[in-house]
């Protein structure tokens, strides 16, 4: 498949993943005000048993931007997302080939628990633990950090504020997390992920189970989160991708068709398939 390469496109045919450590390349990126790569993916193939879910993926996910992956069901976008924090390894009978870099280091050389603290994840359905709201946010902190009571309370408050949930739950921190609404639960899950100060936040269709108002709240949230966090979001909702994303990657049948600035994708995509998908002609 022919993929064009334009000057401001982030996608390149095959990222030379050693290039980004090089100082000239770094200076060039500064000059062009291009974001640093958070993830650099080269020649990635992924298999569920004999089924190949990802085919030769090459892409860069830029640092502190919102990158959205769109595409029809079964196109591999969630699989790719779950490769970024190696969540796929928990699924039996899967195999991954190729290289991924997190910043300048090989993703697979991190201890997996460390990696998952750096690369947080929020799932499709809100899955709060059957504990109090406070405990939900504190859960990740208690795994590694030894915080005293006051520090813990501060960290929990900070995380809940970052997830724009503090004002709604500050009076019922010690009530069960199952008692709040679905939208609040999903923001609680975001707060829980933010509590351990991740560098990246992966969101797997975070709004698919939520009403429009809760969805809007989470979308607003993403604008604030990208100040200190790289965000990768998988979504079925193209309007959502258009609203929140700086970069959009379009996947089809396990292949990356193109990844580019959101404006470029939605106004003037390079590929005919992308054009067809975003105008609703198939998928």
């Amino acid at each position: 498949m022919a993929r064009s390469f334009s000057a401001n496109a982030v996608q390149i045919r095959r990222p030379d993943i050693d290039r980004f450590a090089h100082s000239d390349a770094a200076a060039e990126r500064e000059r062009n005000q291009l974001p640093w790569p958070q993830f650099t993916v080269a020649d990635l193939n992924f298999f569920y048993g004999n089924h190949q879910a990802l085919k030769n993926i090459n892409l860069i996910v830029p640092n502190r931007r919102v990158t959205a992956f769109i595409g029809p069901s079964g196109c591999g976008k969630t699989t790719l997302l779950r490769t970024f924090n190696r969540m796929n390894e928990t699924v039996p009978n899967t195999r991954v080939e190729g290289r991924i870099r997190l910043g300048e280091h090989d993703l697979f050389s991190y201890p997996v628990t460390t990696l998952r603290r750096v690369v947080g994840m929020v799932f499709q359905k809100p899955a709060p633990f059957p504990k109090s709201i406070f405990d939900n946010v504190a859960y990740g902190l208690r795994l590694e950090h030894r915080l005293n009571k006051r520090e813990m309370a501060e960290k929990v408050e900070q995380s809940l504020r970052r997830a724009a949930l503090w004002d709604e739950v500050k009076d019922k921190l010690h009530q069960s997390a199952n008692g709040i609404s679905g939208g609040q639960q999903q923001r609680l899950c975001i707060a829980r992920a933010l509590a351990v100060d991740p560098e990246v936040l992966l969101l797997d269709e975070p709004c698919s189970a939520l009403d429009p108002i809760s969805t809007a709240k989470i979308e607003d949230l993403l604008f604030e989160l990208k100040e200190f966090c790289t965000i990768v979001i998988v979504t079925h909702n193209m309007l959502q991708a258009a609203r929140v994303a700086d970069y959009v990657g379009f996947f089809l049948n396990g292949e990356l068709i193109e990844l580019n600035r959101a404006k470029h994708i939605f106004q003037n995509p390079d590929q005919q398939q992308t054009q067809d998908y975003i105008t609703g002609r198939f998928g």
């Binding site: 460390t114 990696l115 998952r116 994840m121 799932f123 795994l143 829980r192 992920a193």
Partner: peptide
């Protein structure tokens, strides 16, 4: 998965 994603 929620717990694993927290680095447990």
């Amino acid at each position: 998965e929620a717990m694993m994603a927290l680095g447990a």
